[in-house]
Amino acid sequence: MKAKIAILCAVSLAVLALSPFVGAPLEGEQGRFILWQLRVPRALMAALVGGVLSLVGACFQTIFANPLAAPSTVGTTAGATLGALVALVLGPALGLSSYAATAALPLTALAAFAGAMIVSLPIAAVAASGRARVNDVLLAGVAVSLAAGALATGLQYTADQAALQTALLWSLGHLPQVGYRDLLMLLPFVVPVVIVLLLQTRALNALLGGEQRAFSQGVDVPRVRALTLGIGALGVAACVALCGPIAFVGLVVPHIVRLALGPNRRVMLPMSLIVGAGFLAACDLGGRLILPGRELPVGVITAALGAPTLVWLIIRGNRA
């Protein structure tokens, strides 16, 4: 067990550390600039976003008691996407200038968070009522996702050309060319999210024994559910605002970790964070290498890996 944890950590961190050095050879002053000002911050961004999405996914799976629950399946990502799109499309129209991701992050993040919460709160309320079955909650999430998706498409239809181009690239889910400043802007959002979620470990572990039993053991189940959902939505919103809806990371990584290390949340939550960091860095590297001279948005890679995984999980779940 300890050896497995060490190997997974080592592989994830090695992928993360080596990913900036893979690709077109870097030489001289320009090479140093590309390495330290472009590739390294981007790898760090991949690590941060991948880690947070995976941790949130692992927590959502626990509170929904469903292996298919992830930010992208319970509506959080869709809500954040809709909110961020509103900011991206309507922002220029309202005369908010300088639409670089950097300058816009606080606004976009705020809009994404608002969108994520507007979608997540009714679902959290349903979950916290104690009357709904977990599958009802998941279905509500799917319904809200579809509605938010339709609104987002409608919004893009009304957007002008320039805004549409921005919105399209963004909505594929990509890691933008960021500097260290963007990383520093993301940190105050995601660090508290990670801390609060990891502090829930014992309660989430108790939930594995069934929600009623967890309640009798002293876990305030509605509170844990609402807190995890709300804080998770905040983390997802921050990531979505910067990188767009990077799908399936929060679904796939917790499954990899569980298959390798078992379902104990004491191991699964921190390891989802670490493996998720390495996983998204690897996906981003793949996006840089697959088409020579061009970059594939990382969201395309994760979707290509995630969709079959989702189908496989459903088929396996039906058999069990």
Binding site: A206, Q212, P263
Partner: peptide, 25 residues
Amino acid sequence: AWLPQTGGVVEAISALELVESARFR
């Protein structure tokens, strides 16, 4: 403390881990 009628364990957590988590309080 309560011994419920049905199991309700949702994931393949080990017996030891399940009992450990009962120490939540």
